[in-house]
């Protein structure tokens, strides 16, 4: 199969099942794009995702750069579309029904999914950590960043992001 088409299918599938957001399906995307279909390397994947925290907008924008690296501007559009189609279609359908009219099984299932989403998010965090150059030090920095976010929820997270980038530029060699 052509790599662009494979990328489209992998992202589309992840998008349709992305309860809990992109970060929750990050590890699965890495499994399908990197391990299964070898479209890019582990390092490229986690680097691309990390750049997205330095750019404005929802983190799904990381897919644009991923597609761009694979197939230029058309690839960027294709990757963006692969995510946008299932997520906005389902949101549109559920929104039209309204949350109060949503069937009971849907709400019960969404509630039951919470621990699964938490596990998937943890897997996502481990994915971004796979290409740490200094694992022990960088896990320390990540957990400090987490502590910052938990203790100062009202501060804009961009300061934590900037601090991590600065610390990295000075000390991580």
């Amino acid at each position: 199969m052509r790599p662009e088409l494979q990328m489209f299918l992998d992202i589309f599938m992840a998008g349709a099942l992305s309860f809990g957001g992109l970060a929750a399906v990050l590890s699965s995307l890495q499994n399908s794009l990197v391990s299964q279909h070898h479209l890019l390397s582990n390092e490229d994947f986690s680097r691309t995702y990390s750049l997205a925290v330095g750019a404005p907008g929802p983190n799904a924008i990381f897919l644009s750069l991923l597609g761009y690296r694979l197939a230029g501007a058309p690839g960027a559009c294709l990757a963006g579309l692969a995510w946008a189609l299932p997520t906005t279609f389902l949101l549109h359908q559920i929104g039209r029904t309204g949350s109060t009219q949503a069937p009971a099984w849907m709400k019960a299932t969404r509630k039951a999914l919470v621990p699964i989403v938490a596990g998937m998010l943890t897997a996502g965090a481990m994915s971004t950590a796979t290409s740490f150059a200094l694992p022990a030090a960088q896990w320390g920095l990540s957990l400090s960043g987490l502590l910052w976010l938990v203790l100062r929820p009202r501060w804009n997270p961009i300061w934590m992001v900037a601090a991590c980038a600065l610390i990295g530029a000075i000390w991580i060699r």
């Binding site: 920095l141 990540s142 600065l166």
Partner: peptide
């Protein structure tokens, strides 16, 4: 390269934060 490694830590922290 170091700054990007730092950004990877920030990304990890942000994902873990959404789990909390």
């Amino acid at each position: 390269r170091g700054a990007l490694q730092g950004l990877q830590c920030a990304a990890t922290a942000l994902i873990l934060y959404s789990a909390t």
